[in-house]
């Protein structure tokens, strides 16, 4: 199961955990699995079938541009973070 780091503001929805384990071959599947255990979490991450504006996901330390479609392995670490812009 992948290791998922939960953003601080969403931890109350994840039983107060900063880190949980979840099954899934993609970020989308991982979020679906999280929703089963922690109802109400998915809607905070996903909107209209994609990651909410302002939220990015990093898998194994690399910020993904594939969003929900990004591949996740059983040994992966998935981190949801605030999206950034540069100049």
């Amino acid at each position: 199961m992948a290791r998922v780091l939960i953003p601080a503001l969403l931890q109350p929805l994840a039983g107060g955990n900063a880190e949980v384990a979840a099954e899934g071959a993609s970020v989308g599947e991982v979020i679906r699995a999280l929703e089963v255990t922690f109802p109400g979490l998915a809607v905070r991450l996903v909107q209209d079938g994609r990651l909410r504006p302002g939220i990015s996901v990093a898998v194994d330390g690399v910020i993904s541009h594939r969003g929900l479609r990004e591949t996740v392995n059983p040994a992966s670490e998935v981190i949801f973070v605030a999206a950034l812009s540069g100049g």
């Binding site: 953003p7 601080a8 503001l9 969403l10 900063a18 809607v43 905070r44 909410r52 302002g54 605030a82």
Partner: peptide, 18 residues
């Protein structure tokens, strides 16, 4: 982070890393 406060405000968003 995806949850909207009920009252309108001049604060558009709040994020936290911990």
């Amino acid at each position: 982070m995806g949850q909207r406060d009920a009252a309108p405000s001049n604060v558009a968003s709040h994020l936290r890393h911990e």
